[in-house]
Design a binder for these strands. Sequence first.
DNA 1: AATTTTAGTCAGGGGGACCTGATTAATCGA
DNA 2: TCGATTAATCAGGTCCCCCTGACTAAAATT
Lengths: 172, 172
Amino acid sequence: MPNLTKKRNAAGKLIEYGMVQHMADDLAHRRHANKGDQQSPFQGQGKILLALSQTDGLSQKELANRLNMTAQSTAEFVNKLVKKHLVSKEKSTVDRRKTIIRLTDHGRQTASKESAKIPAYLDDLTDTELDQLIAILTKINNSLYDEIHTENPHWFENFQRSVADHLRDWFL
Amino acid sequence: MPNLTKKRNAAGKLIEYGMVQHMADDLAHRRHANKGDQQSPFQGQGKILLALSQTDGLSQKELANRLNMTAQSTAEFVNKLVKKHLVSKEKSTVDRRKTIIRLTDHGRQTASKESAKIPAYLDDLTDTELDQLIAILTKINNSLYDEIHTENPHWFENFQRSVADHLRDWFL
DNA sequence: AATTTTAGTCAGGGGGACCTGATTAATCGA
DNA sequence: TCGATTAATCAGGTCCCCCTGACTAAAATT
């Protein structure tokens, strides 16, 4: 059991990180008042983009399942993405009830740009620090995965399958 | 300039961290279907709570300034917090135009509970790792602060004054 | 062929973060 | 004193995430 003071300290830094991150985003967001993009890849439309960039051509139902959303929510986000020309809908020929969702080229670009960018602040770290950071985050992430897994195995599986693995493809 | 592969790797872990964090929150959120709380301390209502927990008894105008929001947005969030009994409004006696916002006991509790909790996953780290993590996050946060500072000094000052310092009070 | 299940859609709702514009009430300054 | 500034409010709007209920069209089942 590690030293309490250190833990408090680390917890504070972590919160501060979240805070200052959010602020930097906010700033970027207002700075060039972008066209509508720039939002969390972990919910809503972003989530769908992320899932599709691993497995393209899913049906809405499958998306809904993997992302633990209702079919209606999924439909809503998909439609918004269609309007932004990031994905396309087409009726399945094998089962005409199904609608297949595919990333457009633009969508694919957007999705990978989103996740593949390396924050500038990593340039300020030494190789040693990067190694340490990677090791630590791996531990932390695994703890969190465990937590999710014990509380809701179903979510965990879907999530792991459709998104987490994805990151490895990109970054490792 | 650090090794590119390491940077990519670290960036991936960081994204993964955000993702799995978000998911864990989501889970907690749905698990006991709480009364309305549980949202980001970095925007809207949470932001106000945070600011007040450092400096209680600010006027709406002051809040709006520090948090870089319009007076109207501030009023909206304050009113929502009042409905939740987390803050109280009272007319200033010295300047009857002003409304002084104060945390209620419940609000104070909520705010500190929010930030003072130490994530369980830190227990899985060794003392050495905690030290490393703290050092690394300090560097990262400072980089981000610099970024914000050069892009918008005004925001930076307000933010630093009303929130960032706060964390030190709690955690160090 | 008749029934049930499945994939999606429409309609509508709740809550959240923000914002602009117009208006009121107090206080300040010339 | 009287007009200007200041703190707040009301009204209304945009966009986001996400859900329930009701309904259609296309399978699958019996």
